[in-house]
Write a protein that binds this DNA or RNA. Sequence first.
DNA 1: GCCCATGTTGATATATTACTCAACGTTGAG
DNA 2: CTCAACGTTGAGTAATATATCAACATGGGC
Lengths: 123, 123
Amino acid sequence: MGSAFGQRLRELRRQAGLSQRRLAKEVGVDFSYVSKLENDRLPAPSAETVIRLAEAIGASTEELLAVAKKIPGAVGDEVVGEPAAQRFLRMASTMKLSGPEWEAMVGKLESLREKEPSGGDEP
Amino acid sequence: MGSAFGQRLRELRRQAGLSQRRLAKEVGVDFSYVSKLENDRLPAPSAETVIRLAEAIGASTEELLAVAKKIPGAVGDEVVGEPAAQRFLRMASTMKLSGPEWEAMVGKLESLREKEPSGGDEP
DNA sequence: GCCCATGTTGATATATTACTCAACGTTGAG
DNA sequence: CTCAACGTTGAGTAATATATCAACATGGGC
């Protein structure tokens, strides 16, 4: 199982009509690096570089981060400070949550705060 | 902003009645490493070492992982492959979820699968 | 034929992570 | 005193992450 990152990057770059060199220049990396990424000769780049790549080719940062299996440092650092967050992640991992299930959890997250903050802590 | 990891590790180790050398031996690291960790002279260890430390001192792995701000590789790799998971994490991060809110999300996770699988398509 | 834009490859560089090793200081028991 | 267990410190190492640089190959346009 290759990382699939390279293949997807190549697809998206071509859809954007960019050469490797042009893309590389826009995101600020060496063009040969892009080539190696597309051929899976090197592991996926840092989350920050993945994000710049996604932006340059007009793709979803979340999709590209997902295929790269990277978490932006800021997000990770912010999230993991709570023991309950650790529990949540471990459970989600062992349950192997599907995409739709994750979507459902996003929905729960939204509803967490959009309902009246009247003071009660459980509905 | 010290990492707080060192202080907590020291507390827990003392509660467990272990010397630095004894603990180090049990988890398989050098004793001087434990000393530096407790004095915040070095950043928190890898998630795997944090877990072994927690086990050796009889503490909650989740608490120690949380103060170390580390995610076990297995968990991270499992979780981040879904774009929706990336969205979830980013939202959770910007919302700065509190402990109780994370607990609530754990509850949602549990209820996700314990309710009748009415249309089950796999045995 | 020559150029030049594109893509590929091998060797190498730099930073960070995650530690170890050797030496030194302190304190209480015998 | 001395020695033994405990703790602290400075320097160094090994592995991984994250790339760069120089060189080469290919195909289309003039």
